[in-house]
Design a protein around this nucleic acid. Structure first.
Lengths: 249, 249
DNA sequence: AAGTGGTCTAGACCACTCC
DNA sequence: GAGTGGTCTAGACCACTTA
């Protein structure tokens, strides 16, 4: 029903009108009320509903489009966009896609999983409380049969509905989360570490070999969703990016 | 003279007017014709000069401001901005500022410098031609007296006027370049490596200790400016960034 | 007090594309 | 053909800041 969507757009009277419109629609998108694919009311409808001129409505929508939240096409109108799958340099990256992008066979194995309260060392490593309900997973990703990345992950039960019923038999946890959870913030850290004995054995490298450690935590509206540590043997990984002084090129 | 600046803004007739205006001014900024601090003609002057409405001129200027090329203030007008000193996660970073930002004493020493054609191994490492005129430098940066980062850099003579006369006695080469050259593009790569014997000795770590290797190359309008390899002992460095699915938070 | 940018309107014409 | 967004105008009033 178009009316219900129109009625959902509420201005709060704070700041410029175009920004009120932008924030109102943004909130509907990031909260999940308007999932990807939802059609956004056309400019003239918003204009009448909100009592603003078309230029003002247009300005809000253009900005949302520039931010990537919506997609606009003449005649067919405006729809809520799918969140970008990959992101900048430290992206929410699909390892299967990365490997296949290199033209290699992809395979993975869940080496361990435990649900419930985290063990003390796990809670410590991920900086979470011992009483939080999480799943703790260790996954080895392979490219052309060779160990590629070692993934250790916790998933917060509260942030990932359906977690209990998923066994990650056909989709690795990272990709499953991309489809089954929302996130609004992510933090990444990258550092160099030597592989520990157990890690080296799994990755089939020698202990102490330099690896890139990418740590990522994501939240949805301050609800933690997941935290992951990805260990990449250094000789096999580089992260590359291109910039200009005023932005990405 | 305001007139000369106004006259410098030339539209090319390609695409929307607001974008022609945006590109015209952008080109004046990134080419260096309008250095940082230059005042940009006010909207009404551009409007008359270009025969566009104020909204159209405004749209171009707003976009340039959002891109960070200009700074706008009511009453005082619009001026060309200084290029951002630091950049995203893989920034054109001032090591002195980074160290001092951590509350530590900063010091550096130029361990070696040679000007002219690069040695074969240097040309190989940086992917440059043997006949290019460059300066090759090795610099050790210290924080509170302890080795912090090992920097190996080449600077292209053609891209850095004044290079011959600079001895880097008071300013390390990275910071000197920030003030004495323009750049329009940069490429970064990050990987994990083990410290070599010579590097380990200089950094006072053990050979093979994992280090983050940040490699950066910059160009100004396809003229190479500099290329640098920064070796950070892994235990002391992390790069951290925060994102939302639709952009930096 | 005056110059500057920030916002907004009411309307117009055009370009694209689906029906 | 008609619905949608893309662009543009001519004007207005306001907010901020400096002189």
């Amino acid at each position: 029903m178009t009316d219900s969507r129109l009625d959902a757009v509420k201005l709060d009277g704070a700041g410029p009108v175009y920004d009120q419109i932008r924030r109102a629609i943004r909130d509907l998108v990031v909260s999940g009320s308007w999932p990807p694919g939802t059609s956004v009311p056309p400019e003239h409808a918003l204009m009448e509903q909100l009592g603003a001129s078309r230029m003002t409505v247009h300005r809000a929508l253009v900005q949302l489009a520039r931010e990537g939240l919506i997609t606009r096409r003449r005649r067919s109108g405006t729809i809520v966009a799918s969140p970008p799958a990959s992101h900048a340099m430290f992206d929410i990256l699909s390892i299967p896609e990365e490997v296949r992008g290199l033209g290699q066979d992809y395979a993975y194995k869940v080496l361990s999983r435990s649900d419930g309260r985290p063990a003390p060392d796990v809670a410590e490593r991920f900086g979470i409380k011992r009483w939080e309900k999480v799943a703790h997973l260790v996954v080895l990703h392979r490219a052309d049969g060779k160990p590629h990345v070692l993934e250790e992950r916790i998933i917060h039960a509260a942030g990932a509905p359906g977690l209990e019923d998923e066994d990650f038999a056909v989709t690795p946890p990272g990709d499953w989360l991309l489809e089954h959870s929302l996130w609004s913030q992510a933090e990444h850290a990258i550092s160099a570490v030597g592989a520990g004995a157990a890690e080296a054995a799994l990755l089939e490298i020698t202990e102490g070999e330099p690896c890139l450690l990418v740590e990522r935590r994501t939240w949805n509206q301050s609800q933690p969703v997941t935290a992951v540590r990805l260990l990449h043997p250094g000789s096999r990984h580089r992260f590359v990016g291109r910039f200009g002084p005023y932005g990405r090129v």
